[in-house]
Amino acid sequence: MTKPTVTSDRNAEGVCIRIAGDLRTQSLDQIEGAFKSISPDGKDVIVDLSGVQSMDTGGAWLVADLERRIDTSGATVHLEGLQEAHASLIETVSKNIPEAVGEQAPPRGLVETVARVGERTAGAWKDSVSIVGFLGLTLHRLVRTLIMPWRLRRAALVSQMEQTGFKALPIVSLMGFLIGVVLAFQGATQLKQFGAEIFVVELISISILRELGILLTAIIVAGRSGSAFTASIGSMKVQEEIDAMRTLGLDPIEVLVIPRVLALLIMLPILGFVADIAGLVGGALMSWIDLGVSPGMFLTRLKENTDVWQLAIGLIKAPFFALVIGVIACWQAMQVKGSSESVGQRTTASVVQSIFMVIAIDALFSIFFSELGI
Rank of each mutant, 00 (worst) to 15 (best):
M1I: 14
P4A: 13
R10H: 08
E13L: 08
E13V: 07
G14F: 05
I17C: 04
G21E: 10
G21Q: 09
R24L: 13
Q26H: 09
I31G: 02
G33K: 13
F35P: 08
K36Q: 15
K36H: 12
S39Q: 13
G42M: 10
K43P: 00
I46C: 08
V47T: 01
S50I: 05
D56E: 10
T57R: 08
A60N: 03
L62G: 02
L62V: 07
L62R: 06
A64N: 04
R68E: 12
T72M: 09
T76L: 04
T76C: 03
V77E: 06
L82T: 07
A85W: 00
L89H: 02
I90K: 02
V93Y: 04
E99C: 03
A100Q: 10
A105Y: 00
G109A: 09
L110E: 12
A115Q: 13
V117M: 14
A122E: 08
K126N: 09
D127H: 12
D127G: 14
S130Y: 03
S130G: 15
I131A: 13
V132I: 15
L135T: 14
G136T: 03
W150Y: 04
R151N: 07
R153V: 02
R153D: 12
R153P: 00
R154C: 07
A156R: 08
A156E: 14
Q160E: 09
T164N: 09
F166N: 11
K167G: 02
F177D: 01
I179M: 14
G180W: 01
V181D: 01
V181N: 01
A184G: 06
A184H: 01
Q186I: 08
T189L: 13
L191S: 10
F194M: 11
E197D: 14
E197W: 00
V200M: 15
I204D: 12
S205V: 09
I208M: 14
L209S: 03
E211A: 06
E211R: 05
L212H: 01
L212C: 08
I214T: 09
I214E: 03
L215D: 09
A218M: 01
A218G: 03
A218S: 03
V221L: 11
V221T: 12
V221Q: 06
S227A: 15
A231N: 04
A231P: 00
A231Q: 04
S232D: 14
G234H: 05
K237R: 13
Q239V: 09
I242R: 14
D243Y: 05
D243N: 15
R246H: 04
T247V: 14
L250D: 06
E254F: 02
E254A: 14
I258H: 02
R260G: 04
L265W: 00
I270P: 00
F273L: 15
A275R: 06
A275W: 00
A275V: 05
G279H: 03
D290F: 03
S294M: 11
S294R: 10
M297I: 13
L299H: 05
L302C: 07
N305Q: 11
D307F: 07
A312R: 08
K317A: 01
F321V: 11
F321T: 12
L323T: 12
V327A: 09
V327S: 09
I328C: 05
A329W: 02
Q332V: 05
G338K: 14
G338C: 09
E341C: 02
R346A: 13
T347N: 07
T347D: 08
S350V: 08
V351C: 10
Q353F: 00
Q353K: 06
I355Y: 01
F356V: 11
M357S: 13
D362E: 15
D362T: 12
S366P: 00
F368Q: 08
I374H: 09
